[in-house]
Simulated assay, not measured.
Amino acid sequence: MPTTPSRSPLCTRDSLAADLRDLGVRPGETLLVHSSLSSLGLVCGGRVAVVEALLDALGPAGTLAVPAHSGQYSDPAGWQHPPVPEQWWPRIRAAMPVYDPATAPSRGIGVIPEAVRTWPGALRSAHPQTSFAAIGPGASALTEGHAPDCRLGERSPLARLEEAGARVLLLGAGFGSCTAFHLAEYRTSSPLVDNSFPAMTPQGRTWLTVRDTSISDEGFEELGAAYEKECAVVRGGVGGARALLFPLAEAVAYAEGWLPLHRPRS
């Protein structure tokens, strides 16, 4: 019995690498990637083939970075997907393991970042909730020094990516996923909030609460649409996915001007 032809393209490591090069990904550059595997079509080799294609396009001198966030290392009082009963909160706080960059799974950011996180030689930053993973010669400089009271600000990999002249690739992902915009929140007088997680100290495990800048992706899609209209964003296709490529520093600078006007905070 004949099968129904798929409307999704068939992608391979080589075809994806060629698409990335055609889009403008350059050998030797530093690239922060937000991605959706399903948007690409049928990928022969799955998430592994996508990472291989990205590394092929970047070459041995390039550095690949991804968010490797793990929001499960947080206060259960703020959990919403799903919420948990209040009577469980003390037990969860007491039993939650301390974040280990080598073993803590990423969550809510797709399967490609998880493939990068577990890639041979990959490095990962130390923040228990908003870590980044990276592969390549620039990985150490990007991931070191991620402060526990700075999720996505000046002492996070985002600022190191900015210093490195990184570009952002949205690979089947929207501007709502663009973590670079959060760096602008730290520069636009966003309020401070308490942030809690288990941590290891010289005295042993403790439940640590720090003061950090409030972060939210509210309005990021609108921010991204405005940025895309006014700046030279490279647009194209990779497999079946819509892809956008742009300088991280330029996007952050644009967000610094946009956020106070469109999302004022007290």
Rank of each mutant, 00 (worst) to 15 (best):
L16Q: 08
E86R: 14
S190C: 10
R265G: 04
D14R: 14
I109K: 00
D19F: 08
L192G: 04
V252H: 10
S140Y: 06
V111H: 07
I135W: 00
E144M: 12
V116T: 08
L169D: 05
L169G: 05
A243Y: 11
V48E: 11
T143S: 00
V50K: 04
P2M: 09
G165E: 06
T63P: 05
R205G: 03
P120Q: 07
L40I: 13
A255E: 08
M200K: 13
R160T: 06
G176L: 02
A53F: 13
A225G: 03
A133D: 06
W79G: 00
P2V: 14
A18L: 15
R263S: 01
G237I: 09
D100L: 08
Q129N: 06
P264W: 12
T63M: 04
S39L: 07
G121W: 02
V168I: 15
H127V: 13
L158F: 02
L64T: 09
T30H: 10
P198R: 13
C11A: 14
A241T: 11
V33G: 01
R263C: 04
A225Y: 01
G176W: 01
E144C: 02
A57Y: 05
S131R: 06
T3R: 13
S214N: 10
T30E: 01
S214M: 12
D149L: 06
G41P: 03
R124H: 01
W207K: 08
R117G: 07
R107M: 08
I135D: 00
T130F: 12
L37I: 14
I92M: 14
L10N: 07
L170K: 12
A61E: 15
V168C: 13
A255D: 11
L248P: 03
P85S: 10
S38F: 10
S177E: 14
P67T: 11
C11F: 08
I112Q: 03
T4Q: 13
G62M: 05
A115F: 04
L20H: 08
R155I: 08
F246A: 09
S189I: 03
G108A: 14
A243N: 07
S15W: 02
S74M: 12
H69S: 02
S140W: 11
D19Y: 05
V25D: 04
E114L: 02
S190N: 14
S6D: 14
T103H: 08
R235Q: 11
P157N: 02
G28P: 08
E221N: 13
S106H: 01
W119I: 07
P198F: 10
V116R: 04
L55N: 00
T201R: 14
A95P: 00
P191Q: 11
T201M: 12
E86P: 05
E222H: 10
L16P: 07
V234I: 15
A134I: 13
R155V: 02
A166N: 02
C231W: 12
W207L: 10
G240R: 09
E162W: 01
C150Y: 01
N195C: 14
E162N: 05
P120L: 06
S140H: 10
L208D: 02
H182G: 06
G176I: 06
E86Q: 15
S8K: 15
L208Q: 15
P105D: 07
S216V: 15
E52A: 11
T103Y: 00
